[in-house]
Amino acid sequence: MRYAALSGWRAENIAVLLPLLRAQCKRMGQLPPETLLGGSDVLPSGRYAGEWSASCTALQSLTSFDALKGRRFIEKWFRPYLLTDSAEITGYYQPVFQASLTRGGAYKVPLYARPADLTTTTDSKGQQQSGRWVKGVFEPYLDRAHIDHGALAGQGLEIAWLKSSVDRFFLQIQGSGILQLPDGRRVAVAYDGRNGQPYVPLGREMVRDGLLNTGSVSMDSIRAWLEAHPSDAQPYMERNPNYVFFRLEGAASAFGPKGALGVPLMPWRSVAVDRTTLPLGLPLWVQTSLPLQNGSTEHWQHMVLAQDVGTDIRGVGRLDLFTGSGEQSAYVAGHMHASGRIIMLLPRSENVIGAAQ
């Protein structure tokens, strides 16, 4: 297809993505050329780190570019292909929770680091699986219920302490966050592995049990129910056996946490994808709508980069938009469940550079 067919393309300012593109190219340059970035084997390019060398070399020669030069760069070095007209797009953000680096007072809920015996292996389909070896057999790690009831206590894995298990549950859903410490400092915590147990959406469980209506499911409504029913909250959260571990990242930055590609995520410009469908690093043109706090929606069409993965992000056309941190980011991430259109922008090799499409 042609760039002229992309609704809103001429209004896009690719220049804001320059720092992200540079960081991405630097990371890819550190990888062996044969490194598989992901993606379906039917894709003509972009699956291996070496296939990005031409476009990344061209980017290095640019000291800066404005909106027009940015679009021309993408048009020259990337070819657009329609992925789907029926995408399913959600959002995630970097929440802020009150926490302490030491236990005491209201801070009694531990946030755990990755256990030493948690590892990953590759299954027969080439997919990475998390778990541990037990008597020569690889199996999922301890589930949420076992960990919640003290299976990891006393091992020195506590990196911080939160005020509630509900806070911890939502921090694990997002996969990263910011801890607001009693002395005023803000430190970042980043994803550092999961237990390999299946992810069970709590909203789906609540709808099935008649606790929430399908149209009212959001992070806000789920959290409100959990906080209003403290005696039932823990058993419900334990219906999701999936458990995420974290590491301290130091002072919180203006950018987001590092994604699966190893570069910091940019709010509203980084997305999580299914790595079996799309390779990490791939630019995507996304046309969808964002929920607004007044109850309406806003048409949204921008170029984003596939820089992260998610436990519940599976299938062609499944995207999770990183919205950053703050009230608006939390609202969009908690309420976004939109359809949309996705166009892949696949990198060209220097041997096939032609006129912009």
Rank of each mutant, 00 (worst) to 15 (best):
R2K: 08
W9A: 01
V16W: 04
L17W: 03
L17G: 03
A23I: 14
C25H: 01
C25W: 00
K26G: 10
R27Y: 08
M28R: 04
P33E: 03
T35C: 05
D41A: 08
V42N: 11
V42W: 13
L43Q: 08
P44R: 06
S45N: 02
S45Q: 01
R47G: 01
E51L: 06
S61L: 15
S64T: 13
F65M: 14
A67R: 09
R72T: 15
I74A: 06
I74M: 12
F78E: 08
R79T: 15
R79V: 15
R79P: 11
P80C: 03
L82H: 02
T84V: 02
S86E: 15
S86L: 11
Y93R: 00
F97L: 07
R103E: 15
R103W: 12
G104T: 14
L111P: 12
R114S: 12
P115Y: 07
L118S: 13
D123G: 05
P140D: 03
P140G: 04
D148H: 03
L152P: 05
W161I: 12
S164R: 05
R168N: 04
Q172A: 14
G175Q: 00
G177E: 07
Q180C: 08
D183M: 10
A188F: 00
R194D: 14
N195R: 00
Y199K: 05
L202D: 03
E205Y: 00
E205S: 06
V207E: 04
G210L: 10
N213G: 13
G215V: 15
S216M: 08
V217F: 07
D220I: 11
H229Q: 06
D232Y: 11
Q234N: 12
Q234G: 11
P235A: 13
G250D: 09
F255L: 13
F255C: 07
K258R: 09
K258Q: 09
P264G: 04
L265Q: 04
P267Q: 13
W268S: 07
R269Y: 14
L284T: 08
V286S: 01
P291C: 13
N294K: 03
N294Q: 07
S296D: 15
T297L: 09
A306P: 13
G310W: 01
G310Q: 02
R314Y: 09
G315A: 12
G317H: 09
L319A: 04
T323G: 09
G324P: 00
S325K: 10
S329W: 02
A330K: 05
G334W: 04
M336C: 10
R341G: 01
I343Q: 05
I343W: 09
L345Y: 00
S349V: 15
V352N: 04
G354M: 08
